[in-house]
């Protein structure tokens, strides 16, 4: 039985508006109405949440509790708006520098373990002897892939100067293509699933099948 919920109807109409792109094969008025509605709602909501969470909970709320020190981040945050005032744009440099520095520091601290050290360890773990044939085969493939892909990115190793390097680099490129192919295939799978999600909404929630 078709839904009587006004929210479901709005969702269904906006969904059909968005997919009207497929019929006209280009942007149309219905598509743009839906697009701007989504962007407007999302932006308004995010501003409200950020103001409530950051400014109220983390700044004004704490200052009201007597933690005067929190007035410093509040002022630094306000300095960001200097970008909007001609002649005072330099004020924004301090908060931007802080954001970049803190982000870089936090990222650099953790990225070495998760994305460098542990990945190198995993890439070096080639179990060939004493394991089942599938694991051994995978280890050999992994070993070849790691070496050839690294060789592909050694641009200083010129094929005319280093004999045999072109074959190794070409093999590395093959492995990269396999990765990109897998990624592309998975991307198509994701896009189809997103459409499936809207189809399920239309069929189950709106039309009531």
């Amino acid at each position: 039985m078709i839904s009587t919920d006004i929210g479901v109807w709005i969702g269904a109409i906006l969904t059909i508006f968005i997919y009207s792109y497929f019929i006209t094969n280009r942007q149309n008025i219905a598509f743009r109405i839906a697009q701007t509605t989504v962007v407007g709602c999302a932006l308004g909501y995010i501003i409200a949440i950020v103001m409530a969470k950051n400014v109220d909970y983390l700044a004004i709320g704490k200052i009201a509790q007597g933690n005067i020190i929190y007035i410093i981040p509040l002022i630094i945050g306000l300095m960001m708006y200097g970008r909007l005032v001609p002649g005072y744009t330099y004020l924004a440099r301090t908060p931007i520098a802080l954001i970049v520095a803190v982000g870089l520091g936090l990222g650099a601290r953790a990225v070495f373990e998760s994305d460098v050290y542990m990945q190198i360890l995993a890439s070096s773990n080639w179990l060939i002897v004493g394991v089942n044939p599938v694991t051994a085969f995978n280890s050999i493939i992994s070993l070849i892939a790691v070496i050839t892909v690294i060789a592909y990115f050694f641009f200083t190793l010129r094929p005319e100067k280093v004999p045999g390097i072109k074959a190794i680099q070409d093999t590395g490129r093959l492995f990269l293509m396999v990765y990109f192919g897998a990624k592309f295939g998975a991307t198509i799978m994701t896009r189809l699933t997103l459409f499936l999600g809207r189809a399920q909404f239309l069929v189950y929630d709106w039309l009531g099948f």
Binding site: Y179, K183, T187
Partner: peptide, 21 residues
């Protein structure tokens, strides 16, 4: 890299198809 790994916490993850690789 910020939540489980520095604290050595067992982790499981659900992601979209294109995030699996």
């Amino acid at each position: 890299r910020q939540l489980p790994i520095p604290y050595d916490i067992p982790t499981v993850g659900a992601t979209m198809s294109m995030g699996v690789p």
